Deep mutational scan, measured.
Amino acid sequence: KKTSWTEEEDRIIYQAHKRLGNRWAEIAKLLPGRTDNAIKNHWNSTMRRKVEQEGYLQESSK
């Protein structure tokens, strides 16, 4: 079943993607209940745009 993505999950994906790049299977290990494919789709459909537009979460990672 599809549940919506939480801010916490987005944060984990964002940090992991910065470190690992497009290694979705590795990132998926950090998110129980999410598949690598689901994460990749979420990144491509939602997060990548956010990151590019806003420099997503930069201000809170100090």
Rank of each mutant, 00 (worst) to 15 (best):
E59C: 05
Y56G: 12
A25D: 08
K1T: 09
K62M: 10
Y56Q: 13
Q53K: 04
E26V: 02
W5M: 06
S45N: 08
N44M: 13
G33H: 15
G21N: 04
I27V: 04
E9Y: 00
L30R: 05
P32D: 07
K29S: 14
K29A: 13
S45D: 15
T6C: 04
M47E: 06
W43H: 14
V51T: 13
G55Y: 06
Q53T: 15
K2P: 06
N37R: 06
W5E: 02
N41D: 15
V51E: 09
G21W: 02
D36G: 04
K62R: 15
I12G: 01
T46L: 12
S45W: 10
V51D: 08
K50D: 03
Y56K: 13
T6I: 02
E7T: 02
A28K: 02
N44S: 11
A28C: 09
K62E: 11
A38Y: 01
A38H: 06
W5T: 03
E8I: 08
T6D: 04
K50T: 06
Q58H: 13
A25E: 14
N44V: 13
V51H: 12
N37K: 06
N37L: 14
D10H: 01
K50I: 11
E52K: 11
R49L: 11
Q58N: 13
L57R: 12
P32N: 06
I13W: 00
E52M: 06
S4V: 13
T3W: 05
L31K: 01
D10R: 03
N44C: 12
M47T: 08
S45K: 11
I27E: 02
W43Y: 12
L31R: 00
K2S: 15
H42I: 00
G21K: 04
W43I: 04
R11D: 06
E59A: 10
K50A: 06
S60L: 08
E52N: 05
E59T: 14
N41L: 11
Q58E: 13
A25S: 10
K1R: 06
W24T: 02
I12E: 03
T3F: 09
K50G: 07
E9L: 03
T46P: 06
S60P: 11
G21P: 07
S4C: 15
R48E: 08
R48K: 15
Q53M: 07
R11I: 05
I39G: 00
Y56M: 13
L57N: 14
S45L: 13
T3P: 07
N44R: 12
E59G: 11
P32G: 03
G55H: 04
I39Q: 01
I39Y: 00
D10W: 04
N41F: 08
K62G: 08
S45Y: 15
S61I: 15
T46G: 11
L20S: 02
Y14H: 13
G33M: 05
K2Q: 13
K40S: 08
I12L: 07
L30Q: 10
M47W: 04
I27K: 00
I27F: 03
A28S: 12
L31P: 02
K40F: 04
Y14I: 11
A38Q: 13
N37M: 13
K1Y: 07
I27M: 08
L31A: 02
K50L: 13
I13D: 01
I13G: 00
E26D: 09
T35H: 09
R49D: 15
W24H: 03
E9Q: 04
A25K: 09
L57V: 14
W5G: 01
M47V: 13
L30A: 05
E26C: 03
T46A: 10
E52V: 12
Y56W: 09
K2D: 15
N22S: 14
I27G: 01
G55S: 14
I13Y: 00
W43R: 01
H42A: 01
L31N: 01
T3E: 15
R49C: 15
K50Q: 05
L30I: 04
L30E: 08
L57S: 14
E26S: 05
Q58S: 11
L31Q: 00
T46W: 10
R48W: 11
T35V: 04
E59M: 11
K40Y: 06
T46E: 14
V51G: 12
K29V: 07
G33I: 00
E26F: 02
W43E: 02
I27R: 01
K40P: 01
W5D: 01
I12F: 00
K29L: 14
E59L: 08
D10K: 05
N37P: 03
A25Y: 08
W43S: 02
S60V: 13
I39P: 00
I13H: 00
E9A: 02
I13N: 02
K40M: 14
K1A: 15
N37C: 13
G55P: 09
T6N: 06
G55L: 05
Y56F: 12
T3D: 15
Y14A: 11
P32C: 06
N44T: 11
D10A: 06
Q53C: 12
V51F: 10
E54A: 11
Y14D: 12
D10C: 00
A25T: 09
E7G: 09
P32K: 10
A25F: 10
K2N: 15
S60R: 09
G55T: 09
A25V: 10
S4K: 04
E9D: 04
E59F: 03
W43D: 02
S60W: 07
E54N: 12
G55A: 10
P32A: 04
K62V: 05
N41K: 07
E9I: 03
S4W: 01
D10M: 04
Q53P: 07
H42M: 02
W43Q: 00
T3L: 09
S4E: 04
L57W: 08
T6Y: 01
L57K: 14
R34Y: 02
S61W: 13
A28V: 04
M47I: 05
I12M: 05
N41G: 11
S60C: 10
L30V: 04
A28Y: 00
E26T: 02
T35R: 06
E9R: 00
E59Y: 04
K29E: 13
L31H: 00
K2I: 07
Y14Q: 13
Q58T: 09
A28Q: 11
L30F: 04
Y56V: 12
Q53R: 15
L31W: 00
H42Q: 02
E9T: 01
R34I: 07
A25C: 08
G33Y: 06
V51L: 10
K1Q: 00
N41P: 00
D10L: 06
E8Y: 04
E9G: 00
E26G: 02
Y56L: 14
K2Y: 15
S60F: 12
W24F: 03
I13C: 04
R49W: 13
H42R: 11
A38T: 08
A25W: 06
W24E: 06
S60E: 14
G21S: 04
W24I: 00
L30K: 10
I13E: 03
T35Y: 03
L30W: 05
S60Q: 10
A28R: 03
W24K: 01
I13M: 08
S61A: 13
Y14M: 13
D10Y: 04
E8L: 08
K40A: 12
L30D: 04
E54P: 10
N37A: 13
I12C: 05
M47H: 08
W5N: 02
L57C: 11
G55E: 11
E59R: 09
L57Y: 08
Q58I: 08
I39M: 00
K62W: 04
G55I: 01
T6P: 02
E59D: 08
G33L: 10
T6K: 07
Y14T: 10
N44W: 01
K1N: 15
A38R: 05
A38D: 13
W43G: 01
E8V: 07
E8P: 03
E59N: 15
P32W: 01
